[in-house]
Design a protein around this nucleic acid. Structure first.
Lengths: 137, 137
DNA sequence: TAATACCCTATTTACTTGGTAGGGTATGCA
DNA sequence: TGCATACCCTACCAAGTAAATAGGGTATTA
């Protein structure tokens, strides 16, 4: 299940991507427009900044803005920063791999092979979708 | 993230599907073979029985067995019974739909449209995969 | 210098997961 | 009939996570 954190994060990113100019937008502005708890959104944007998807400007007239062009921000990056693994199970994860304790042979595991298929397909979608695609809705 | 419940359930189902004849298999047998906590597995198999994927026989020589042919058991059914929604977000779920509180217009929501794509692809995989496919690993 | 707005840590509440415990009940076989 | 087997059912618990809240600190700019 997608966390609210990721959901709010994506919404905030599309909000920023839709801005004409690249002047910073205050957290409170996004919070009101997208119906997101101010403090919760604050921590999400902070995470995105630490992971170099967003940048910020302090003080009066400050706020957050995109570090790259919307067309250069892939959903794989956003998902991994906010949600963590894209795979449904750690034993098929590319970036968050972990071996199953109960499973002696991954290649003989039905769950492993099924979830590998799901991962491949989901990955393909996230790779082929950028922030600019999401703004077209 | 896939729950252990679903993972164990699929493993148990493939174990049953691999049986030559359709004689009942005791929970303890599957538990040992697949390294699954006995009592936890018991509750999982019970769920599968209540949802008419498995049937059981009580008493000596009893156990669980498949109600249908492996090739007739789609992964969509298994996933919905054990994991719940296949979608990553309730607002795109076919069987567990729920409206987002913060979202005034679903069709204008970037998250909604992205997750709809993911759902379609995952659904396609689960629909085209039966228990007999999983046994081929 | 004062207002703005980001920055950071800590805490709370509610919920879910995974597992445990213990006994009840139906079945088959000697 | 009686006993062992093995499913059936309810309740409980520890640990972790999600989502939100609180409160203050710091940099910037007008």
């Amino acid at each position: 299940m997608l966390s609210k954190k990721t959901k709010y994060g994506i919404k905030a990113l599309t909000y920023l991507a839709r801005q004409e100019n690249k002047t910073p937008v205050a957290i409170a502005t996004i919070s009101k427009s997208e119906n997101i708890s101010l403090k919760f959104l604050e921590s999400i944007l902070l995470t995105l900044r630490k992971n170099e998807i967003l940048a910020s400007k302090k003080g009066k007239g400050g706020g957050y803005y995109l570090l790259k062009e919307p067309s250069e921000i892939q959903m794989t990056a956003v998902m991994r920063v906010l949600e963590g693994p894209i795979s449904m199970i750690p034993c098929v994860s590319l970036n968050f791999y972990e071996k199953c304790k109960d499973c002696p042979d991954e290649n003989a595991c039905a769950v492993h092979n099924l979830m590998e298929q799901v991962r491949d397909n989901t990955l393909k979608i996230f790779r082929n979708t950028t922030l600019s695609d999401l703004c077209k809705c």
